[in-house]
Design a protein around this nucleic acid. Structure first.
Lengths: 220, 220
DNA sequence: TTGGCCGAGAATGTATACACAGAGGCGCCA
DNA sequence: TGGCGCCTCTGTGTATACATTCTCGGCCAA
């Protein structure tokens, strides 16, 4: 793998995990030494992180890790809502019904996974990832998918900040089930509305937990 | 200005204008010599173009200018629809009414600008740009705005490919007027629906003209 | 005491040398 | 004569040296 890819992945992972806290200053030389590569691949990695929106130019000279805030979460969800509503609608129109029927079957079993705790949770998250993939495949729209991928990046950061709440996950799996069934049935309207409802609940949950974290935890 | 910025702007402009035709191979050394800078800023510019979606990695080795096609235009509009519906809705909820009332006044006069031809058209396009800015300001959502900016980049490319059709522009100005009035009135539903209608007509127009261009003009 | 200017230092911006990998062409062998 | 393999050559990936610019601190003057 290329050095610039490794640098990008590691920095990205550290930001998502919070090891590189918001407002941390990223300097080329410093990070190059820490990651054991030269400045060139680090510059490339920085550029990609800026494009992801995980890092911003604070002054003319100096990049910092972007902040997370309740306000930002709300903004992200305004975008996410627009994109996923549309994606669900298009998936219902174009998707392979069998793929989504199979997903429905697995979402029905998902509460069991959540109940398994540590053992089942990775499988639950895999399922959600497969759901996202199935949507992307179904919509066949490079622009829309690219926008969704970017949203998911920020979402991953929020997810890791919030604790896993089993009750919420069980509820979410039921919401996913409805969405998947609507897509399998080719009901674009229902798919969009079910997505809307799901995202509303998801947002409410995250806003509450993120608020708690930001107050209690690190100083933002 | 930095050399990398100049390289980026020039390459971007050339791609949007079609001087760098779709499928043109972009090589670092070649472009560096042509633009009179070293490979480093060219690499940075390439990276930004890839992120814009104006350029893609074809093989492991070699970037090419992305193609335009009717299919791509349709995809772009699926994304644009999702984003602008939401933006219009949020603008209606949050926007400064006076700003949009002022825009309404100017859109009422816009058909005159179109009729002026060469003299008025730049002013017409300025007005549309100010409309976009007003929306961005009103929604106060960095994520949504960033996504819209990206869409507008691709849209600019399509616009330059399609000829200016005075009839369509007059019609579009009436559609803009309705959107702006809905936002000024704080009617989120109407703003979203009016936007939807506008984009549908806009898409229909572009699909027709782009199709004609791609058939008659350059080989895609 | 405060404000502004100047200089030192450090960090980024750019150029370039070198390393490496992939593609294409040429030659050899079957 | 055609196909396979090696070699060369071109172009990207990385490192590093040099240029440039911004920042911060100190000093001087009002």
């Amino acid at each position: 793998m290329r050095a610039s890819d490794r640098a990008y992945r590691q920095l990205r992972e550290e930001i998502l995990d919070g090891e590189l806290a918001p407002n941390t200053v990223l300097a080329e030389v410093e990070q190059a030494e820490r990651l054991g590569v030269s400045r060139t691949p680090v510059r490339e990695a920085f550029s990609r992180l800026v494009n992801d929106g995980l890092v911003v130019a604070q002054t003319a000279r100096g990049l910092v890790v972007t902040e997370l805030s309740v306000d930002r979460v709300n903004q992200l969800y305004e975008l996410r809502l627009a994109l996923e509503d549309q994606a669900a609608r298009l998936a219902a129109l174009r998707g392979n019904k069998r793929v989504f029927l199979a997903l429905a079957e697995r979402f029905r079993a998902a509460p069991e996974l959540v109940r398994l705790g540590e053992l089942g949770l990775p499988r639950y998250y895999d399922l959600v990832a497969e759901f996202d993939e199935a949507i992307d495949d179904a919509v066949e729209n490079a622009y829309l998918t690219a926008a969704l991928v970017n949203v998911r990046t920020h979402l991953a950061r929020i997810r890791r900040l919030a604790r896993h709440d089993p009750d919420r996950l069980v509820e979410a799996s039921r919401e996913h089930l409805l969405i998947v069934e609507a897509i399998a049935a080719g009901d674009a309207g229902l798919a969009a509305h079910a997505t809307h409802v799901h995202l509303h609940k998801s947002k409410t949950h995250f806003v509450a937990t993120v608020e708690r974290h930001l107050r209690g935890g690190q100083v933002a």
